[in-house]
Design a protein around this nucleic acid. Structure first.
Lengths: 129, 129
DNA sequence: CGGTATCCGGAGTGATACTG
DNA sequence: CAGTATCACTCCGGATACCG
């Protein structure tokens, strides 16, 4: 059952809950996904949002998310370089999970007497389809 | 913003999404929580469910979940020893998150042509309150 | 039954410097 | 702008043995 499975093409978890966590549980991954919900951002934008991540780590997490089909990376052949990241349909389908985590986490932080550092204000309306 | 935060009382994430993941994202934690939803299990029961975890790791994850207030550990002063683990109210409140991860993960595994290894059949009905 | 104690290899990640 | 390369180090977590 997937020892040390960390998104390599090793043996992967087949428990749905664990499998989901494999995809979104990596360092900075949830934060990256959360920032990309309904938006397209460039690498430097993401660096600004995920301040704790070094370029190296940010790149690594983005590549893994791309491999797993959760986001797409669009490279423009211009100078200076321009790369845009956005969620795929599969990535957008994580939205309910991310939102319920956001809601739960907000309540939890308040119970601890702490203040959430990122708000939901810029999150677009949920689109039914 | 919480470098290397792994449930020690260091500096913790204040982003709700990341904070939630801090609590449930640890190794085997989601699986443990998932198995305890609506149920009470003994240590040996959990070992049977979370087969990949060594006693050492299982203990560690259980202790962290307890510290975070997600589950309670009840020790009976009998011989042989008897310890029961169950979710607290806070732990049970994670249910919607775990369920949406289960649903998403199941669909994802099917898209990959794989078969989920744990079913939902034994999960009790959702109790509104 | 329900854990602890100890050892230790290696994956994960930060820091720093460099590049097309 | 959007990364890559290299080094160094922490500490996660497996294996194994033991205990009240």
């Amino acid at each position: 059952m997937a020892k040390g499975c960390s998104n390599q093409n090793k043996l992967q978890n087949c428990c749905p809950v664990e499998r989901t966590l494999d995809l979104i549980g990596g360092k900075y991954k949830a934060l990256i996904l959360w920032n990309l919900v309904g938006k397209t951002l460039r690498f430097s934008d993401l660096q600004r949002e995920v301040t704790a991540a070094t370029p190296r780590m940010l790149t690594k997490q983005l590549r893994e998310l791309e491999e797993d089909g959760l986001l797409s990376r669009k490279v423009y052949a211009v100078v200076p370089p321009k790369v845009e990241y956005s969620l795929t349909e599969l990535g957008e389908s994580l939205r309910p999970i991310l939102e319920s985590m956001y809601i739960w986490g907000t309540a939890f932080l308040h119970k601890q007497g702490r203040t959430p550092c990122c708000s939901m204000k810029e999150l677009p309306k949920i689109q039914e389809h």
